[in-house]
Simulated assay, not measured.
Amino acid sequence: MCYFEQTRWNCGYWKWGTFRQQCEKEYRTGETCGLKLVYSWQPAQGPCKICEQKCKKERRIDKMLNDIQRWQREGNRRATIEKTMRDVNDIQLQINELLASHVERERTL
Rank of each mutant, 00 (worst) to 15 (best):
T108F: 03
R73Y: 10
L109N: 08
K63R: 14
Q22R: 08
S101D: 10
Q72Y: 11
Q72W: 04
D67F: 03
I81L: 13
R77T: 04
D90I: 00
R107P: 00
L109Y: 06
I50E: 06
R8D: 15
T108W: 08
T7S: 04
N89C: 07
P47D: 13
C51Y: 02
S40C: 14
K36N: 09
G34L: 10
L98I: 12
K15D: 11
K36F: 15
N66Y: 03
E97F: 02
C51E: 09
G30F: 05
W16S: 06
L37V: 02
Q53K: 13
T29K: 11
L65I: 10
R107K: 13
G46E: 09
Q69C: 05
R28V: 13
V88I: 14
Q69R: 10
E106K: 11
F19I: 05
T108S: 14
Q6K: 09
I95F: 05
I95E: 03
R60E: 13
R105W: 05
L93Q: 15
Q72R: 12
G34C: 10
K36L: 13
I81N: 01
Q42I: 06
E58H: 02
Q92W: 01
I50Q: 03
W9E: 10
L93H: 09
R73I: 08
R60Q: 13
L109S: 04
Y27H: 10
T29D: 09
H102E: 08
E82Q: 12
E26Q: 11
V38H: 00
L65N: 14
L93P: 01
N76F: 08
R20Q: 09
G75C: 07
S40N: 12
C48Q: 00
G46R: 01
L35K: 12
C48D: 01
Q69Y: 07
Q69E: 14
I91W: 01
K49V: 04
V38C: 08
G75Y: 01
T29N: 06
A44M: 10
Q94E: 15
D90H: 04
R59I: 07
